[in-house]
């Protein structure tokens, strides 16, 4: 304080007001959000800019460390779209994202509803379903790679035992199945996250709403459509948008299970981007693909932010 006084009453007053606002006004809010934002911008925003920049430049191993590089305009984008694998990868990415998220969400929701029933041990058993949350992707990939193997894989043995299939399905090597092999593993991996968040959302719905509806003669399905879904809109928004981001970042499973093969039939955008940068050492194309993926996440973020509009504050 002494220092402030010396610099004159006007500045001192300003400073005091600033400090007071920090303690007791908007300044406090700005400080809280600002600290997080500065941190995020430094650690995530700058790398983002680096990648966007790189997608418009010519990059080689000698210029990886600098920002100023020969300008390439949209050439990298044109080159990526012209790659023979481009449309196949786009299709695979869509399948992977849509069905992973769909599977995680539907099964996660079903489990969340199931475990919201009142039966002995419900919460303990539900806890077990969070296991995939703590499993590192690397480990999950290795395990599923074994389970899905065609000849010595246990999934085929089980399915044959149950009479569902007659001969082995080559999950990892058949172009008709390879992307589904990764989808299956990814659904398993993401189940915990979906079920957890949806359980939280379910628990937040006041019981009396259901009781009132039951008195009005609404059946279970009607109650689900008129109470559960609308009340969970913000939770569902969060689950889906975080789920999309998570799915688009899912990487560990690909090198472990299919390596994008056979013949790129299980290559998705994020794996392709990594492969361009770190296996083919074409850093500009790798960055270009990752920037293209940004557009998808942009959509997800908008959905999420919009979904929070309907939130009811406790």
């Amino acid at each position: 304080m002494g220092v402030i006084m010396e610099t004159g009453p006007a500045v001192g007053g300003l400073m005091r007001r600033f400090l007071a606002s920090l303690r007791d006004g908007v300044g406090f809010d700005i400080l809280l959000v600002g600290a997080a934002m500065v941190f995020l911008i430094a650690m995530a925003g700058l790398p983002l800019i680096y990648n966007v920049l790189m997608s418009f430049q010519q990059v080689d191993m000698f210029t990886l460390g600098s920002l100023i590089r020969p300008w390439a305009g949209f050439q990298n984008y044109i080159d990526v779209v012209r790659e023979p694998a481009f449309w196949l990868v786009a299709k695979n990415t869509f399948i992977f994202v849509f069905f992973s998220m769909g599977g995680q969400f539907v099964i996660g929701f079903a489990l969340a509803l199931f475990f919201a029933q009142n039966f002995p041990g419900a919460s303990t058993i539900r806890g077990l379903f969070l296991v995939s949350w703590v499993m590192p992707g690397l480990v999950v990939g290795a395990i599923w790679s074994w389970i899905l193997a065609g000849d010595f894989g246990v999934l085929n043995t089980i399915l044959k035992g149950l009479g569902i299939i007659q001969s082995n399905v080559f999950w990892k090597s058949d172009p008709a199945f390879s992307i589904w092999a990764v989808v299956i593993a990814n659904i398993w991996l993401g189940l915990a996250f979906n079920m957890l968040l949806l359980s939280v959302g379910l628990a937040a719905i006041p019981r009396d709403l259901y009781e009132a509806a039951e008195l009005d003669g609404a059946n279970a399905l009607q109650r689900f459509w008129t109470i559960t879904l609308p009340m969970m809109r913000s939770t569902i928004g969060a689950v889906l948008s975080l789920g999309l981001i998570g799915t688009l970042q899912q990487f560990d499973l690909f090198p472990a299970i299919t390596e994008g093969g056979p013949a790129n039939t299980s290559t998705v955008a994020q794996y392709w981007s990594w492969q361009m940068s770190f296996q083919l050492y074409d850093f500009a194309k790798g960055a270009t693909i990752s920037v293209m993926m940004l557009v998808l996440v942009l959509i997800a973020s908008i959905i999420y932010v919009r979904s929070t509009r309907h939130e009811v504050r406790g």
């Binding site: 911008i41 995530a44 994020q270 940068s277 940004l294 973020s301 932010v305």
Partner: peptide, 21 residues
């Protein structure tokens, strides 16, 4: 809120080079 999500979009594998630099 939007930027909190957006800032998270790039996979770690492509963020690591700029962060390393």
């Amino acid at each position: 809120l939007f930027s909190v999500l957006m800032l998270q979009v790039l996979p770690a594998s492509v963020m690591v080079t700029p962060l390393f630099v």
